[in-house]
Amino acid sequence: MTMKFDLKQQTVRELNQALHDLPKDATDEINVDNLMGEHNVAVGLDQPISVNLNGHAGYYCAGMNQKAEVVINGNAGQGVAENMMSGKVHVKGNASQSAGATAHGGLLVIDGDAAARCGISMKGVDIVVKGSVGHMSAFMGQSGCLVVCGDAGEALGDSLYEVHIYVKGRVESLGADCVKKEMRAEHLEELSQLLKEAGCEDDPAEFTRYGSARQLYTFKVDNASAY
C-alpha cells in the first residue's frame, strides 16, 4: 500500500502518529512531500516500511529508527538517524552535525558530505559517507564502522573505543588514541560489503583503516596529558 503525506497540509505530529499506528508487520511505502526543514520527521519508526522524504529535513530526521528504510531526497539537519537501532537511512544530499550519533545498528548512507562529529558516540551502526566528514568524527565511537570515501577533518576518532574507521582520502589529523591500523583480509571483506550495500564503486584497497590504540582504556597517570 502507498500512503501520501504533504507537510504543507499536515503536521509532523499527524505524520508521525500515522506511521506509529501502522501494524508492526506493515511494509507500506510512504511518500512525504514538502519537508521544508521540519524537525523530527519520521522519528521512532518501528515497522519494515519504506519512507521517501522529499525536501530538506531539519533536526533528528529518522531518529531512533527501527526496521524502516528511510530515504531523504535532500539535505538532512543535525542528528539524522540519531540512535538508530536497525533499518536503513539514506541521505541523498549532505548531512549536518552529529549524523548517526549514538546509533546502535542499521546502515546510514550519506551521498554528500557529513559535517562535524559524524558518528559521535556510535554504538554499532554502520555509516558510509560518500563525500567527506567534518572534525571530531566518530568521537568516543564505541562500535560499528565509519566509512569515508572522501576526506576526514581534524581529530578523527578521538577517544575511540572499538569502531572500525575506513578513509579513502586525506585525514587532517587523528584524535587522541586513534591510530592507523593494518588492513587485513577481514577488514577488506567488511569494507567491500559496506561499500556494496551503500552502492559505492570505490576500490576497498584504496582505503586506510584507523582504530583505537586502546591506551586510554584505563586510567594511567602517565596518560594524564592525553585527556
Partner: peptide, 18 residues
Amino acid sequence: PDWTGPDDLAIKIQELRE
C-alpha cells in the same frame, strides 16, 4: 552528542515526545 544549548534542547524534547 547531538545538541548544544537550549534551542537545540527544545527540538530534542520534541523528538522524545514525538
